[in-house]
Every structure is written in C-alpha cells, then in structure tokens.
C-alpha cells in the first residue's frame, strides 16, 4: 500500500478525491446553468434549467421509463449478441488464418460504414421493427469485441505455447486453457467499448425508424418532444440516455474488475502493483 493514511468509510483518500472531485465540478456547472437561465430569463423552450428538467423527469416518468425499458432491452440484446458472435468469430479467426484473412476486411467495412446510412435500408428490409433496431445496434457494437478478442487470442506467450506442444495438448486444450484466458482482458476491454456503442446504435436506429406507439424508445421521445416544442422533456429523455450509458459502462467495468482482479495488471490497485 502507498502511504495514504488509514482508509475512511471503506475509501482511501484518493478514493474520496476520485469520487468527490468530479461530483463538485458537476454540481458547480449545474448551479451556474440554473443561475444563468434564471438571471437572463432564458425561456424554457430554448434552454430549460436543471431544476425544470428534473421536475419534468419526475412528472413524465411513466412514459419516459417505458421508453427507457424499450431502449435498454434493444441495447442489452445487441450487446449480448455482439459479445457472443464477436467471440465466436474471433475464435474461428484464431483457428484458421485463411478464414481470418478472407472475412476480416468485411468486418472492417461493416464497422466503417456509418450506421445512419445503412439503418434506413435495414429498416426497409426487415419487417420486424424491433429486430431491425437490434441489427443496427449490433452492427455498431460488434466490431470492438471482434477485433480486441482477435488480438487477444493472438497474444499468447510463445513459451507457454511451446509448453503446451511439449505436453502434446490438443487444439481444444490450447484454445480453452491458454488462448481464451489470454484473450479475456482484451475481450472485456472490447466489451466496455461496445456497451456504449450498442446504446448509440440503438438510439440512432430509433431516430431513423421514428417508430411511434407503445414500443417506442428514448430516441422517439426526444423526437416527439422536439416536434411538440416540449424542450424540458427532450432534455429529460437526454439525461436518461446519458445516465443509461454511464450505468452500462460502470456495470461492465465492475464485471471486468471482478473477473481480472486476481491476476491482471489492469485490475490491480495502485498500491498493489509490484
């Protein structure tokens, strides 16, 4: 441990700084924002103050939370499919160089084509709107997992590989006991990037689809509020989108930390580092 004095309430001095410093900045900015809107008398349809946004969030919680659930479902499903397919494809690439060389360029093409440009096509081709949103979110989310995991599977210590060869390990044993554990930190890093991207993909697709009715996500709430000039509600939906993104990131970081804390450098506390 570094010399930081005794931990208080389960957090070290640095832990408290890490928690409180960004919080103080956030509160200061919100205060300034509220102050300016009141002092300058800016009308709420141009820029609503944080207090009004919070009130709107509470008042319109029923429709907003229903939309949040829709967006969350698509995001989570897209991330899940991206993780599963990305991992499987990466394993396939690691097994056969020919497969990797022939398929990887197409994965790159999928990644660099702007989702806004392909979303309308997908929405036309796929009848089921939820499925088309899911496909859009998946396209955005899957590449970081694929490329990170591929790098991870190829980063195996060559001496360990020799050791496995010496003991005549099967291909399956090399994959399961050596390549996959080596790739784990890379996969998890990819997953953390993809979590945010899945949400962005879902929101963008919703914007393009512009679905109304019951099955509409947060993006539709933003569009709708914009049309109706209910700007505070638009901001409330935006706050929910950001909060969701932060929550996804924190959750994936926690999962990554729990899985790697025993052995990987990235998950070690500063004081623990040798």
């Amino acid at each position: 441990m570094t010399e930081e004095g005794p931990p208080r309430l389960g957090l070290t001095a640095e832990g408290w700084t890490r928690l409180l410093a960004p919080l103080a900045i956030g509160l200061a900015v919100l205060g300034l924002w509220e102050g300016i809107t009141r002092w300058k008398g800016i009308p709420p349809y141009v820029l609503p103050g944080p207090v009004l946004i919070a009130e709107t969030l509470v008042r319109d919680w029923a429709p907003l939370s229903a939309s949040l659930l829709v967006t969350l479902k698509i995001t989570a499903l897209a991330l899940l499919v991206a993780a599963a397919l990305g991992l499987m494809l990466a394993v396939l690439f690691a097994q056969s160089r020919v497969v990797e060389l022939s398929l990887f360029p197409y994965a790159v093409i999928l990644q660099v084509t702007p989702i806004v440009a392909i979303a309308p096509l997908i929405i036309i081709w796929v009848d089921d709107i939820t499925l088309s949103l899911l496909i859009c979110a998946w396209i955005v989310a899957f590449f970081p997992i694929l490329s990170n995991t591929t790098v991870g599977l190829n980063s195996t210590d060559h001496n360990l590989l020799d050791l496995f060869r010496l003991y005549r390990a099967s291909r399956w044993q090399v994959l399961w006991r050596l390549r996959l554990p080596t790739a784990m930190p890379f996969f998890l890093a990819g997953l953390r990037i993809s979590g945010g991207l899945a949400l962005i993909g879902a929101i963008v697709a919703e914007f393009v689809a512009g679905t109304g009715g019951n099955a509409s996500g947060l993006a539709y709430r933003i569009l709708e509020a914009g049309f109706q000039l209910q700007i505070p509600r638009m901001f409330a939906a935006l706050v929910l989108v950001s909060a969701t993104g932060i929550a996804i990131f924190l959750m994936l970081s926690l999962i990554s930390h729990l899985l790697l804390r025993r052995w990987h450098e990235s998950a070690l506390g500063r004081g623990e580092r040798r």
């Binding site: 001496n159 020799d162 050791l163 003991y167 052995w263």
Partner: peptide, 16 residues
Amino acid sequence: ARDIGFVFQEPTLMPW
C-alpha cells in the same frame, strides 16, 4: 508426452 520436463529462462507461468 510426460517424459520430458522443460524449464524456460522465464518462469512462463499462466498468470490467471
């Protein structure tokens, strides 16, 4: 497969 043991210059352990 079990008749030869090999020790490398680095310990070459699986960190996980």
